[in-house]
Simulated assay, not measured.
Amino acid sequence: MDQEKSHSCCCVLDASTYVGFWILKKLLSRGYSVHAAIRKNGDSEIEETIREMEATEERLVVYDVDVLDYQSILVSLKTCNAVFCCLDSPEGYDEKEVDLEVRGAINVVEACGRTESIEKIVFSSSLTASIWRDNIGTQKDVDEKCWSDQDFCRNKKLWHALAKMLSEKAAWALAMDRRLNMVSINPGLIVGPSVAQYNPRPTMSYLKGAAQMYENGVLAYVDVKFLADVHIRAYEDVSACGRYFCFNQIVNTEEEALKLVESLSPLIPMPPRYESVMQGSEVYEERLRNNKLSKLVEAGSAC
């Protein structure tokens, strides 16, 4: 990171989400000033922690925002050079939340287009925006060119996937129309410290259809600390562009499935047959590809 960027200001919206909170912490540790834009979703533990941090961290300012209130977003973006857009529903996803998230994404991007200081939008999406369709089991490679099918998601009530897909597409369309510099990060299931405590309902929303993801080689997870680093790298690297699939591990064996279940305890109960000994040996073909992310992490990036 160059010296100029180390003194720049970034907005994290919504900083009280699990991913947003870790991005905020990483930015502060790297010398950035941060506007923590928090949606009023009740008194969550993460929100309380951020407000306590504001009292002792001079480079942190907290803003209350409503993503449906365009003006409140504009206030939080003032003087910022970048925005990390991390919209997520703390209550999980249903059909109504899909519409709210799409409208929120549009308002954030539109607000960025009305500011003079924003240099880049780093949009946090999901792998679920890309992996759901009828023929997923026959497709060899699932990468950044892929999108989930809207009708398939609606028919199967995959509201998390639908929200992430529609909001990301809306953000991309508006960013291109306004000629804004945007990068999207599409993480797998997010795991990390106390994820079951701080991010339970979004986690369970992601996992709807987990058995089908697993059998089709598209169930993957990512550590939240690594994910936060990737978001910041996408901002700092001037050549970063387009979409980036982000995951540490594809779950395609029963051993990996067990590790994932253990990391999410007590959200997901341990299957009885695994309590004493592992059984089964079936291995499913991996279909996800994240070669583009590897190039970004290693040093360069590619469109």
Score class of each variant (00 low, 15 high):
F152D: 08
A228S: 13
V218W: 03
M213W: 04
Y198Q: 07
V224F: 00
M213Y: 03
M204T: 09
G188R: 08
E101K: 12
N107I: 12
V195L: 00
T138M: 11
V230N: 02
A211Y: 10
P187Y: 05
K169P: 01
M176S: 10
D223G: 09
E110T: 10
N135D: 15
W132T: 10
Q197H: 12
G113S: 04
S184W: 13
N135L: 08
N199Q: 08
L174Q: 09
Q139A: 07
K208I: 14
S125P: 01
V108W: 07
H160I: 03
E144H: 05
E119N: 14
N155S: 07
R201S: 09
S194R: 14
S130G: 14
E101I: 15
A163S: 15
H231S: 10
L166M: 14
A173H: 11
A175D: 12
V142Y: 03
A129F: 12
H160Y: 15
E110R: 10
D149C: 14
T203G: 05
L162P: 02
Q197W: 00
Q197V: 07
V230L: 06
T128L: 10
A210M: 13
W172M: 02
L174W: 03
I185N: 02
S184I: 08
M165A: 09
V109Y: 11
N155R: 13
F152P: 03
M204H: 01
R154S: 03
G104E: 09
A196H: 12
V183D: 02
I136D: 02
V230K: 07
S148W: 13
E168A: 05
Y214G: 01
S148H: 11
N135A: 15
G192H: 01
K145A: 10
V108D: 06
S126T: 13
N135P: 01
M165D: 10
N181Y: 09
S167H: 06
K120G: 14
P200E: 10
R133C: 11
G104K: 07
G188Q: 07
A163M: 03
I121A: 11
R178C: 11
